[in-house]
Amino acid sequence: MATIIDVTEDKALEVKDFEFTYAGNEKPSVNKLTMPIAKNSITALIGPSGCGKTTLLRCFNRIHDLYPNNKYSGEILFKGRNILQPKEDLIHLRTQIGMIFQKPTAFPMSIFDNVAYGLRLQGMKNKTELQDRVEKALKDAAIWREVHERLKADANGLSGGQQQRLCIARAIAVEPEVLLFDEPTSALDPISTSGIEELVVELKERVSIIIVTHNMQQAARVSDYTGFMYLGDMIELGRTEDIFVTPSEKLTEEYITGKFG
């Protein structure tokens, strides 16, 4: 049995009877899942490797569609519509639901062009407007002070932590409503990690955040809600303090106390 609580806040996303199956597989990697994602909150997805947490995260912006024959069923409701419908405009969806990856993905271009990338895609050509938006995004991502003197420099010259913050700046520059973080600090050192964590907490005032993490302390530190997944099932979703202090499911308790995983 699973214990899924309802959220008190408005819902940014609502998952209903959702299943996802990879191309060529019989068995779904995410099973019959129903859960809410609270608005302007941070929802952490935890669970052992292969439990389906990253797979689930990648459904919210339908990045799975880049590879043929993956199958969705059920519903993911976003702003009143089911984003799994075939006629969903994925380009538009991905401007509203952004994603930060495990490894920093700075494009092979200048720092400025990286942040301006999404804005230019949306047709923004006005130079001063672009400059303002890039500056704002870099400030919001707490990296402006480190890079403002070398915006024309190659983004690949930045450190891993700086690149990750650059990617966050790039994602928030287009002002999405939801941000998906896929283990954003697993390739970073502890100092960069805490910088990213602070940033994620600050961002929730403006966006709803889902973060996949292998690090339970990280989930406990930053998130408002935590979902524990195991073998493709959402075992328990609750307020983070409840999950870590008084979990309802035995499996959750065993996982967070380190009995397996």
Binding site: T95, G98, F101, Q122
Partner: peptide
């Protein structure tokens, strides 16, 4: 590539 697609390219 995924990062660029994720920005709506």
């Amino acid at each position: 590539r995924e990062a660029a697609f994720a920005l709506g390219a």
